[in-house]
């Protein structure tokens, strides 16, 4: 049986760090399977290890127990089949927007590079900005460039580490729509770490809820609604209540029962 490109399997994954000589377990026995092409959000309070999990998938943390498999192969380091968008846009300030998008493209001739850069700037709606410098961009624009850079390598999965966390509320909602559009267009697996429950429900097929010390999977919730989703709908609120209950933030009388 062949595995479809972009399938992530996580089996019995544990990770601990050594702090002042003591082992500190941050992830404990994580088991997850993400079908190719799905949008997954990982939510949890600070310190639940969700960022560590993402870093393992990215290949920046290589010393872990168990298996994190991409297309059936164990992840042992960074690779161009995975793209990343960090919370800070992390554009290199000395490169122009175009050069930043091309940063991950190596060993390609100028013309091919330019074509890819143009395509991806167009994709994120920033055509014509290729010679601007990051310092000239707004936060939302910079994050679009970061997304273009991550997609330029045609990754099988896109990892998003609180990608919209630094943006103001309205820009954030625009960018959520934008992410959804890109996901529908690129048809790749996207794994997003977020604090924002609304954002997770709006975007995801699957919401993974983690709890902390050590980080474990508390609940996996499927979001089966059609897209685009209505943030004000009752089904949306219902799922939100279900997720918040996991954080002990649910109301005594959930909205669904109140009407």
């Amino acid at each position: 049986m062949s595995i479809e490109k972009g399938t992530l399997q996580i089996r019995n994954l544990s990770k601990s760090f050594t702090v002042d000589g003591n082992a500190l377990q941050v992830l404990n026995n994580i088991n997850l399977t993400f079908p190719a092409g799905s949008f997954i959000s990982i939510v949890g309070s600070s310190g639940c290890g969700k960022t560590t999990l993402l870093r393992i998938l990215l290949g920046l943390e290589t010393n872990y127990e168990g298996d994190a498999l991409l297309d059936g192969e164990r992840i042992e380091g960074p690779g161009t089949n995975r793209g990343i968008v960090f919370q800070d846009h992390r554009l290199l300030p000395w490169l122009t927007v175009g050069e930043n998008v091309a940063f991950g493209l190596d060993k390609q001739n100028r013309k091919a590079k330019k074509k890819i850069v143009d395509e991806h700037l167009k994709l994120v709606g920033l055509s014509g900005f290729e010679s601007a410098y990051p310092a000239q961009l707004s936060g939302g624009m910079a994050q679009r460039v970061a997304i273009a850079r991550a997609l330029a390598n045609k990754p099988e999965i896109l990892l998003l580490d609180e990608p919209l966390g630094a943006l103001d509320a309205l820009t954030r909602m625009h960018m959520q729509k934008e992410l959804e559009r890109l996901w529908l267009l690129e048809k790749i697996t996207m794994v997003m770490v977020t604090h924002d429950v609304d954002e997770a429900i709006y975007l995801s097929d699957i919401v993974v809820i983690m709890s902390s010390r050590p980080g474990i999977i508390k609940q996996i919730i499927k979001v089966p609604f059609p897209r685009p989703r209505d943030r004000a709908s009752s089904e949306f609120s219902h799922i939100k209540a279900e997720i918040l209950k996991e954080f002990h933030l649910g109301t005594e009388y959930p909205f669904a029962y109140a009407i």
Partner: peptide
Amino acid sequence: RYRELARVFD
């Protein structure tokens, strides 16, 4: 942060 980015892009 830039060193990490460089690692990601090899």
